[in-house]
């Protein structure tokens, strides 16, 4: 592990600064650039953050699953920290999606919740991610990492099948992106800015967690090294 990246967190600070600026810009666009939707009114503005959060969540969780698989095949502390921080970030965004989703759904579909493919998948992924992180914490010394990695790698293909199943079951999610539901240029620009802002926000959180986990790993290694020296010293000092 390179110590320099921790001592000189310039890259991270730059990321943080750009992400912050973009989030502010997105808020400005949402408030002043995009006009309220003709039929849905002001509530439609949740869309910009809801959809972006959903995309960020899917990216984080699928990366987490893939990285878990990599760690299972070729174990490495760095990959493990990347995978774990990805799943944690994905979980945070899943919470965002599931709070913003019903607010929008209430207005546009008239119900807080529908068993619609993407919403259902998000809910199940949230439960799975929470369970995987929980297992990792509760497994005996050192075994949690592999168990969590195995379950996380299984989750991606199963998530695909869940999506197929719920979609077949029938859903009413607005096909905004495919169908071109947002027509006005102001709305389109706002959506792009919001998407970029949320993506960078997710990257910032992910990087932050990754750095913390790497520091934790380093601390643990140092602690181990000290305890080994401790045992050696006792040995020399004590009667043999």
């Amino acid at each position: 592990m390179s110590t320099s990246s921790f001592q000189r967190p310039l890259g991270f600070l730059a990321l943080l600064a750009v992400a912050t600026a973009l989030v502010l810009a997105a808020l400005y666009c949402v408030a002043f650039v995009a006009r309220p939707d003709v039929t849905l009114g002001i509530v439609q503005k949740i869309f910009y953050f809801h959809v972006s959060s959903a995309i960020a969540m899917m990216l984080c969780l699928s990366s987490g699953s893939l990285l878990s698989l990599v760690d299972l095949v070729a174990p490495s502390d760095r990959v493990d920290a990347l995978a774990r921080s990805a799943i944690e970030t994905g979980l945070a965004f899943a919470v965002l999606v599931l709070t913003s989703g019903p607010l929008w759904a209430r207005k546009s579909w008239g119900a807080w919740w529908t068993w619609e493919p993407r919403l259902t998948l998000t809910l199940l992924l949230l439960l799975l991610a929470a369970a995987v992180l929980g297992i990792r914490a509760l497994a005996p010394d050192g075994t949690g990492r592999k168990i969590a990695a195995a379950l996380a790698s299984l989750a991606a293909p199963v998530a695909y099948l869940i999506h197929v199943a719920v979609a077949k079951w029938g859903g009413t999610h607005p096909m905004v992106l495919q169908g071109g539901g947002i027509q006005s240029p102001g709305m389109q620009i706002t959506f792009r800015v919001a998407l970029l802002a949320i993506a960078l926000f997710a990257a910032t959180l992910w990087t932050l967690r990754f750095r913390v986990l790497r520091l934790e790993q380093r601390l643990l290694n140092l602690q181990l090294e000290f305890s080994a020296q401790d045992v050696r010293q006792q040995r020399e000092g004590g009667p043999t």
Binding site: D141, Q223, L224, S227, A228, V231, R232
Partner: peptide, 10 residues
Amino acid sequence: AVAGRFVLVD
């Protein structure tokens, strides 16, 4: 090591 502490060394 158990729970971050070495029990057996060398």
